Amino acid sequence: MRLPTPPRLTTKPGGQPIPLLNDARRQFRAMGPGSVSTLLKIALDVAYVLLGLLTGLLLILLVTAIFIPIDNLNITVTSDDGGRQLPLTRMLLVFGLGAMTAYFGGFMLILRSLRRIFRTLTMGDPFHPDNVRRLRHIGLTLAVVTGGVWAAQGFVAARLAPGVMDKQGIGDLLTPIFSVLIVFVLAEVFREGARLRRESELTI
């Protein structure tokens, strides 16, 4: 008994693609309405709203921490050597809440730019001129957030909780720096794509 030969994904004699290939292309689209970019845009919108609520809550706690009394309060800080109790000073509380607010606020800025980039992808216009500026903003914000986390952890380890938290070394910055460089390279790729599109429009 001979098994039926599966259909081949080739073109018809006239050079026209077969309907099966067309259906597969219609089902999977990276850009345009109803594409994967649309789903990612919705996910980014949800994440942006949730992150905004979290950042707003941290901001309220930060303002409250400036005025509420915090006498005789301790916190337990865990490390590889075990746990250690530290007095919860106002400076430590305000610094911790301020650092967390700035951290999540920075990622809100990154998500805002990403949402606008994916909005152009859902419109089928990836090389929009504004995407170059948005990618550069993402790279700059990521660099500031990474540097801020590195400096904050060093300050906490040296001043606020000495002997509990280890300082970050220069080696811990290699991966974030590599990520920032990739974003700036992508910005240049998009800038070149936008330039080529302008030249093509002028030619036509």
Rank of each mutant, 00 (worst) to 15 (best):
A187H: 07
T175C: 00
F190L: 13
A161Q: 09
A161W: 06
V183T: 12
M165K: 05
L173K: 04
R191I: 01
K167P: 05
G169P: 02
A158P: 00
R191Y: 00
Q168I: 08
V164R: 10
A161G: 05
V164E: 04
F184V: 01
V189Q: 07
I177D: 00
D172V: 04
P162W: 07
K167E: 13
F178T: 14
P176S: 06
E192Y: 06
V185I: 14
E192M: 12
F190P: 00
D172K: 07
I182L: 15
F190D: 09
R191P: 01
P162G: 12
E192F: 05
L160A: 14
E192R: 15
F178L: 15
L173A: 15
V183R: 10
D166W: 04
L181G: 10
P162L: 12
V180P: 02
V164L: 13
P162C: 13
T175H: 00
K167T: 10
V189T: 01
L186S: 06
D166P: 07
K167S: 12
F190Q: 13
A157L: 13
L186R: 03
R159D: 11
V189A: 09
L160T: 02
Q168K: 10
F178D: 11
V185Q: 11
P162F: 06
V156P: 10
L186G: 02
D172N: 11
F178W: 12
A161R: 06
F184N: 04
L181R: 10
M165E: 06
V185E: 11
